[in-house]
Design a protein around this nucleic acid. Structure first.
Length: 103
DNA sequence: AAGTTGACTTTCG
DNA sequence: TCGAAAGCCAACT
């Protein structure tokens, strides 16, 4: 097959994000690692364009904080999903100790 | 073709 | 705990 449209990377990212079980989350770097790459930023870019087609709220930063500009929406979704959250310094974030999903 | 940007990560101070 | 800098990959200009 020789028609790499370039969406190959995006498709892979979306596939992995869609495979994240409910109540769990993955960091951008973890998704990239699952692809065999370190393109955490590229993953974020894909999510910004196609994120609406996948449970984007299950993808958070390595620090446990949700994506920038969508923190409120993400936390609301995560809490509704039963994702283990933790409050630190008055800031709610995902408890990566237990919520981090392994591909 | 080269430089900039981005829903990132990690290390140092 | 916070801030800044370097490293990383893909897309856009």
């Amino acid at each position: 097959m020789s028609t790499p449209t370039g969406d190959e990377f995006a498709e892979a990212v979306l596939d992995i994000v869609a495979s994240i079980p409910k109540g769990r989350v993955m960091a951008y770097g973890d998704v990239a690692a699952a692809l065999g790459s370190r393109a955490a930023r590229a993953v974020g870019r894909v999510m910004a364009h196609h994120g609406s087609t996948v449970p984007w709220w299950r993808v958070v930063r390595a620090s446990g904080d949700p994506a920038v500009g969508k923190e409120e929406r993400a936390l609301e979704r995560l809490r509704a999903e039963g994702t283990p959250l933790i409050v630190r310094d008055g800031r709610a974030r995902v408890d990566m100790r237990t919520a981090r999903h392994r591909a």
